[in-house]
Amino acid sequence: MDPILTTNVLNVVYEVSTLAVVVLGLAVVFGLLGVMNLAHGEFVMIGAYCAFFVQAHDLPFLAAVPLALLVCGFLGLVVERVLVRPLYARPFDTLLATWGLGMLLREAVEAVYGRGFRSVATPLTGSVEVLGADYPAYRLLLTLVSVALVAGLVWWFVRSATGRRIRAVVNNPELAASVGIPVTALARNTFVFGCGLAALSGVMLAPLLPVNPTLGLDFILKSFFVLVVGGLGSLVGLISGSGVIGGVESVVSAVSDRTWGYTTVLVIAILFLWLRPNGLFPRT
């Protein structure tokens, strides 16, 4: 295979799989709670800053993972209690409130770290030869970890008892509550879990991004498009949505340029929102 073509293919796989991981937390929270957390991108951003923080203090890169989970988990706990729980019955206001939250987190991080770009060193340097093409090792690792994460979550969701309980709650919250499933705790844990996933993806992506306070904004919009295209609240939807959005963007970008890639994604998102708001795989 032509090494350039191989590189391009790997780029597409990388784009799609990392996008899926970023969207994962958002999809879990939306699918299970019906809450569109527009501050999701800011949790990703905070995760990335955790990676920066760890490196700035000469700690190993992997130390960022527990730190980010702790910080974002705690934030998620507070946010669920203060912001999300009172608004379960007002999904529209949740949208606004989490959007305000995103703004708040963005500005708060900016007040602490400034607007400048922080760079996080790649923990794994060098490249690996894949089918005749040299590909950066960290990107390759990230792709594999992303695929594993998504697959693992799907497997867990289908097989585990908690997964079954969550599905019961989704299908019928009143009934679930009446048979003794602790709906409130489950909702809280789900939200915290979603925030944790965002933080994790932030840590993972940090070495490949200029870390700055507005980093989350880019992700939340694209993540939202992924959910719209794939279908809100289904895992198949998540994967297909990431495939369509990430795939189209990187293929169009490779053939033409990034402007067209991004424009195409926007047009696809608008068409879906308008003509097929339930996406490719709507939850039945």
Partner: peptide, 20 residues
């Protein structure tokens, strides 16, 4: 005022939550 934008975001959230 330092954190003015943070304050503004907080005001917005409070308005959404309690003072529609």
């Amino acid at each position: 005022i330092s954190y003015w934008e943070v304050i503004l975001a907080a005001i917005f959230i409070v308005v959404v939550l309690y003072f529609r």
